[in-house]
């Protein structure tokens, strides 16, 4: 519990589960959820290094806040793109979104 490697492994496992979700899902919202999981794995890593190694504990927390803000922006943009795609294609399955295919 008070060991850096525990948190690093938890972060890596969260990131891997998110990667699995991005690779196997075909639902765009499902992929967005998996990307959120990946961002959280990275955040756990930042906070673990901040707790155990960093010279100043504020820096890791600021980075984590920054990533959270980026995740919020990404969710807003992604969801609006999903809505636009659904209105155009009547589906959010990414295998239907092939209009740009050459």
């Amino acid at each position: 519990m008070n060991c850096l490697n525990t948190y690093l492994i938890i972060g890596a496992a969260l990131f891997s589960i998110g990667l699995l979700g991005v690779l196997q899902r075909r639902n765009l919202i499902g992929m967005l959820i998996a990307v959120e999981l990946m961002l959280n794995g990275a955040n756990v890593n930042f906070m673990a290094f901040n707790r155990f190694l960093a010279p100043e504990p504020t820096v890791g927390q600021i980075i984590t806040l920054f990533v959270m803000g980026l995740a919020a922006a990404e969710a807003a943009i992604g969801l609006s793109i999903i809505l636009a795609l659904f209105r155009r294609l009547h589906s959010i399955n990414i295998e239907r979104a092939q209009q740009l295919r050459g």
């Binding site: 890596a12 891997s16 699995l20 690779l23 196997q24």
Partner: peptide, 9 residues
């Protein structure tokens, strides 16, 4: 997908 994420992990 499982193989790729396992390799990464």
């Amino acid at each position: 997908a499982i193989a790729a994420s396992l390799v990464f992990f």
